[in-house]
Design a protein around this nucleic acid. Structure first.
Lengths: 340, 340
RNA sequence: CGACACCAACUCAG
DNA sequence: CTGAGTTGGTGTCG
């Protein structure tokens, strides 16, 4: 009767219960699961884990395998990175500690070798792509192809020392050396290659009160990290481009010639890698014969790229990739600054 | 240059350092704080507290002051409502007491006088809305700006007496109840209109051991009140829909033609009021081109609504609205029942 | 049609 | 503070 009807309606649900796949990646657990709970218990007690939900197992594995890049950022940072922390600097970033330990776990999470994280050796391949998907190649869905960074000079670095310890420990060594970034040796190396994460954000994107900000992350406590409000039209895309502009601009001023730039904006990356070539010859017309919208800023960025060799890399958003998360925070903070 | 720009950006950060305000409302503590810690320690040891984060102190205070409305609904319940408690239904309601004392303390929490919690005397007004916001209006994403509703009949009510006393004391005193329109007879009236509160809950929502329950509240001691375990997929949204289904189902069986249904689930309300129309013509596809997830139960509910005229009303959750709180208790109790 | 991103809202939980 | 359950939208391109 009414009960039975109720039950019937619910009963049917069982068979149509949507099924998802969850991927985890943290300092000590990586894998794909069929439920959030399996997933979360897997990293029980560990704080920094990040998860993501996917519609298919394939996508989930893609996520897990993505970003194995040890990500040796500004690794040349031989010094403890000069404490630098007093004066100004973005208070909201790293604010309320709890951030510090994160950097530690990051070190662990970065490499896939020195920590045994899961019962089964998690299938590490995926027919799909491998994270540091640099998009210089034009070919679509190519075979597993290892070529790509199979190489991997594994560079058995001692990560732990890298960030965490240096952070929490000696803050003292402020040997009067002013926080001047140009100290040659530090992470401000005026040469060689560098890695940077870029992100833009835009509160209320597409609505009236929209406010956008850009974030550029070079590494923990790196003085070149940037968080600022976007000027002009407040949209997510412009913010994303502006972040890249700022990054390359900074690289240029630091005399960096080779820059690996991570962004989660395919729009920006594809614009610079693929589409711009066509636009240059067709008068900046979209496939639909309309004007390319952010032509100006795209051209600015292109100009900068003539002076700094930028290797564009895509990183999935909200995927717990440290650099991306940091850039995101910076961008979000920037969006909250007063209008220019 | 680049450096100075950097500093400038950092300087800006300082002045725009994001600041939040936290409001608490529980049996023995009400207030607004500047940090989560202050806020949470304030209600140390007490289980039922609810928190909320706001961007401005004003909003936080609004929350604290919000909803003093005793909400005299379905007041027509003249009879002591036959104690009725034996048979089937909601076994675990009132279970684990803590409810009784809570109601007492609620009285204290309602007014801001008998306990000194904050330096300045909480502003008690709020320019916002007044509770029974019915959503017949259709306006799309409205701008942050608003002329409008200056109106605001402030309704200078006597809050302190309103809820607390009536709750703990006689359920019988039908005398005072004025706003009962088509009361006619007891709450079992087989005609006219009725008012009902609906709620769903789901412990560990999104995790493995999730257990969901539904709650339907028609009035104190009303035999139609419902508290049961949800079957099928255990999610908060399904519970919320199921509660509405059960309410309308009951209304139908009672031969009620006009039902005012209060829910705190915009998901459910919007589904029935707005979105379903589009779904019916687009093959139940979400804006993101994916399948609508709870199609089945939504259709069941829609079917019921063809037989009972339901007036959907939204009530904010955790706002001390009597009916909503009761439905919440019933739902929570339902979630603790054994699986079906 | 596809893709990435950026948001908005309400719940339910821990 | 962290997460899921769910929906709605724009920004942009091919």
């Amino acid at each position: 009767m009414s009960i039975s009807r109720f039950c019937r309606s619910l009963g049917l649900c069982l068979q149509t219960m949507p099924k998802f796949h969850y991927a985890v990646r943290s300092g000590r657990s990586v894998g794909v699961f069929n439920s959030w709970d399996e997933c979360s218990t897997q990293v029980n007690g560990y704080g920094g884990a990040r998860y993501k939900k996917f519609g298919t197992a394939q996508e989930a594995w893609d996520f897990v395998n993505a970003e194995r890049d040890p990500n040796p950022h500004f690794s040349q940072s031989s010094q403890p990175a000069r404490q630098y922390n007093k004066g100004c600097s973005y208070p909201s970033y790293g604010y309320k500690t709890k951030r510090a330990p994160a950097s530690t776990s990051y070190a662990a999470a970065s490499l896939g070798s020195d920590y045994s994280f899961t019962p089964e050796p998690a299938p590490v391949f995926t027919p799909e792509y491998t994270h540091p998907m640099s998009y210089s190649n034009k070919r679509k869905h190519e075979p597993p192809a290892e070529e790509s960074y199979s190489n991997s000079y594994k560079k058995a670095r001692n990560y732990r020392t890298g960030s965490a310890s240096s952070y929490s420990s000696s803050v003292s060594s402020s040997t009067s050396s002013s926080p001047s970034p140009s100290s040659s040796s530090g992470n401000s190396a005026g040469s060689g290659r560098a890695v940077v994460y870029t992100d833009g954000s835009c509160e209320s994107n597409g609505r009236r009160g929209a406010r956008a900000g850009v974030g550029v992350y070079w590494g923990d406590n790196n003085p070149y990290n940037t968080s600022e409000r976007l000027d002009g039209r407040q949209t997510n895309q412009r913010a994303e481009i502006a972040a890249a502009i700022r990054a390359v601009e900074t690289a240029k001023s630091r005399n960096i010639k080779e820059l690996t730039l991570y962004t989660d904006s395919k729009y920006t990356m594809n614009s610079m890698n693929d589409w711009i070539h066509r636009w240059k010859v067709n008068g900046w017309k979209t496939a639909g014969k309309k004007d390319v919208l952010n032509k100006q800023e795209l051209q600015t960025l292109d100009g900068l790229c003539q002076e700094v060799n930028v290797d564009w890399k895509y990183v999935p958003g909200h995927a717990n990739i440290k650099g991306n998360e940091e850039a995101d925070s910076l961008a979000r903070a920037g969006a909250r600054m007063p209008p220019l």
